[in-house]
């Protein structure tokens, strides 16, 4: 079995040299980069959080009859959540905190 381990080790090293091995990943990493990919991701994260904020605000207003106020509040919260999402794209929350 010894040379089998040895073979595995050498194979591992060769693969790492050739860049075939996945880079040792920090958690949440491994998401593909590229300007287009990141730009698109940021846009989607922002808009989807805003949409959720809008939906919650609109539904609560309709339910409680509180005019436009909750909608306005939750749109702001939605934008904040979108920014939080974008922050997490670049700084995944990981490890002990």
């Amino acid at each position: 079995m010894a040379d089998r381990d040895d073979f595995d080790r050498r194979l591992q090293e060769a693969r790492a040299r050739q860049g075939l091995e996945a880079a040792p990943k920090g958690r949440g990493g491994g998401l593909p980069g590229g300007a287009w990919g990141i730009g698109f991701r940021v846009g989607v994260e922002l808009v989807s959080a805003l949409a959720v904020g809008l939906a919650i605000g609109w539904a609560l207003d309709r339910w409680l009859g509180t005019g436009p106020w909750l909608l306005m509040l939750f749109v702001v919260l939605g934008v904040a959540a979108g920014v939080l999402n974008v922050y997490r794209v670049f700084m995944p929350r990981s490890g002990p905190r």
Partner: peptide
């Protein structure tokens, strides 16, 4: 907390 909840709910949408 509301921001975190909205962020969580936005996951399936994004």
């Amino acid at each position: 907390v509301p921001i975190e909840i909205i962020s969580y709910l936005s996951r399936p949408i994004s």
